[in-house]
């Protein structure tokens, strides 16, 4: 019933947003469906991701928000049973086009995972790995610069500069997650996908990562999946609400948290379900 209304509302919001010249659509999902074997996980999701903004995906567990996120850099390809339908574009290019090199796509659309997952190598090697396999550095000096810049952008340089050769797994949980962000930044992506990046962190580490996300917005487009309503409210400019594989509604974060159009969003935000 409200798919229609959502649609028209979306369009209205889009029109309003597009009116502002700095709001470019970076990625666009068009009727995205995902099946895991016989089970359908996403039902025709239309969602735009705007450049240099943080888009938060919220919703109860199993609603498809992580599935959608993993479609954006084709990480679902790694699951044998998953099949993706519809169309997803990055800068108006279909990323599921057979001509697209998935390796290059993942370099352009980086990802940070729920659990910090640094490689069991040194901090330096963790950050340097991406640039190395993508040939981003001509020599060691170049690589050093990339590593330093990435760690600085991930607000980890001051803590890590004296221990670059120590294993990344020896850092604290929050530092590990920032290391993973630095690792993602090092390959110079355009979009960074974050799948509940703070769910394994304590409040102080969470605050640091959130601050970092806000800073990163200047240079990157960010899509973040989160279970924390407060986090979505704090870091994102736009929020999309998923439920049972459908996109319930999407809009500016302020509006979503104060005056949502859909009752389910209202109920979820106020903690009545989920």
């Amino acid at each position: 019933m409200n798919i229609m209304t959502e649609k028209s509302l979306d369009d209205a919001v889009n029109a309003e947003m597009n009116a502002r010249s700095n709001e470019i659509i970076k990625m666009r999902g068009d009727k995205v469906t995902v099946h895991y074997g016989d089970k359908q996980a996403l039902f025709g999701v239309d969602l735009d991701v705007r450049q240099n903004q943080v888009t938060a995906l919220i919703g109860p567990s199993g609603c498809g928000k992580s599935t959608f996120l993993r479609c954006l850099n084709r990480m679902n390809d790694t699951i044998d049973s998953a099949s993706v339908g519809g169309k997803i574009t990055l800068d108006n290019e279909d990323i599921y086009d057979p001509k697209i090199d998935v390796v290059e796509l993942r370099a352009r659309v980086g990802m940070v995972f729920q659990k910090p997952n640094p490689f069991p190598k040194s901090i330096y090697e963790n950050v340097a790995y991406g640039p190395r396999i993508h040939g981003l550095a001509k020599n060691k000096a170049d690589l050093d610069v990339i590593v330093e810049k990435s760690l600085q952008k991930a607000a980890l340089w001051n803590e890590a500069k004296d221990r670059l050769n120590e294993p990344g797994t020896g850092l604290s949980g929050g530092q590990q997650q920032r290391l993973c962000i630095a690792r993602a930044i090092a390959v110079a992506p355009e979009v960074i996908l974050m799948d509940e990046p703070c769910s394994a962190l304590d409040p102080i580490a969470t605050a640091k990562v959130e601050e970092l996300i806000d800073e990163l917005r200047e240079n990157y487009t960010i899509v973040i999946v989160t279970h924390s309503m407060q986090q979505a409210a704090r870091v994102s400019q736009r929020t999309a609400m998923f439920h049972l594989g459908y996109l319930v509604e999407e809009g500016p974060t302020d509006k979503m948290f104060t005056n949502p159009d859909d009752k389910r969003t209202q109920d979820y935000i106020t903690g009545r379900f989920g």
Binding site: M75, A107, F113, F119, R183, A184
Partner: peptide, 23 residues
């Protein structure tokens, strides 16, 4: 070897061969 290492490598744009032989 935990799947998170695989995801990390693939997420960085490593090919499957690179993931297997380097990680």
């Amino acid at each position: 070897v935990p799947p998170s290492i695989r995801s990390a490598a693939l997420g960085l744009g490593a090919s499957k061969m690179q993931m297997v032989f380097q990680h």
